[in-house]
């Protein structure tokens, strides 16, 4: 079993966290989004990369 090299893995988790934070900040500041806001909070928090992606591409109104 390989030892998990955390120095290479943590950036991945950090970036995913960053993406979720950007999503939540943009959600908090958005005047209106498609669908209720609490739904997007759940999707961003639980959906990992895909959740944030779906919020940014579909949820946001320009």
């Amino acid at each position: 079993m390989k030892t998990l090299d955390l120095s290479l893995l943590w950036p991945l988790f950090a970036l995913q966290g960053l993406l979720a934070v950007i999503g939540l900040v943009s959600l908090a500041r958005a005047r209106s989004v498609r669908g209720p806001k609490w739904m997007w909070v759940i999707i961003i928090l639980l959906g990992n990369l895909l959740g944030s992606l779906v919020y940014f591409t579909i949820g946001r109104k320009e």
């Binding site: 390989k2 893995l9 950007i22 943009s26 990369l49 320009e62």
Partner: peptide
């Protein structure tokens, strides 16, 4: 609209996910 921030982040995640998942596939 945070595009200048989230799109590069998504590209980086997509890019590094491939070597990481290939390397750790047995685990």
């Amino acid at each position: 609209s945070y595009k200048l921030l989230w799109i590069p982040v998504v590209f980086i995640i997509l890019g590094i996910m491939q070597p990481i998942s290939a390397y750790y596939m047995p685990e």
